[in-house]
Amino acid sequence: MAKRIDVSGLSAYYGGHKAIDDISMTVEPRSVTAFIGPSGCGKSTFLRTLNRMHEVTPGGRVEGKVLLDDENLYGSGVDPVAVRRTVGMVFQRPNPFPTMSIFDNVAAGLRLNGTHKKNELKDIVEKSLRGANLWNEVKDRLGKPGSGLSGGQQQRLCIARAIAVEPQVLLMDEPCSALDPISTLAIEDLIGELKERFTIVIVTHNMQQAARVSDRTAFFNLAAVGQPGKLVEIDETERIFSNPSVQATEDYISGRFG
């Protein structure tokens, strides 16, 4: 199921502004890779280039290559819709569809892609909600609107929605930044379980979180405000947090930054 991502020479632009410059890295399958770095350094932008969501923003443009098991996402003839089915995404703020019930939210990706068989949908919805550790909390209220759940439950609902379409890779853009510590713990546990099946990339501002959940960590930085963000280094999480090879990484992690 999980796939390897090979990025080489990737730059992303917003109109004339270059947001990230010449990034190359490898994301291993069935592992968690964390992106850390100061605000505005292009972590989220880079994440969004991995499933071609960057070009949804007006003026968004990408140069370079992203290989998903040897297939270039930015090659000619590649359908961005097919890319997004393969590479799922969870956003910073929980965003369940307000017009849909909990069941319909999880089934949304499948239904909108053309699966309509009742029994099949029911099985997948249950499996996904169990996968997101939400089933026990919502199994009696599947017909209620998703916006009635708490913030942490909504975020797990969004994760269930993302894994229901069985992607190969799951991108998470600060999935816990709007949540309390207990919901955060629930989601971190979930990430640990999900990495058995998916390749996971997570952007976080919380360095303890990166240390807790990830196998590898990438540190991004920018030279100055207005300059494009760059990848400083990527290594085993343990190495990054104990003995990074670049001084800037150590400064950032130990709080001596800026």
Partner: peptide, 20 residues
């Protein structure tokens, strides 16, 4: 965010508009 959530599920834009 709702449009992006739908697009990120691999739903084509026209279906996103129609269904979300």
């Amino acid at each position: 965010e709702l449009r992006e959530a739908s697009l990120a599920l691999g739903v084509p834009k026209w279906r996103t508009i129609l269904k979300v």
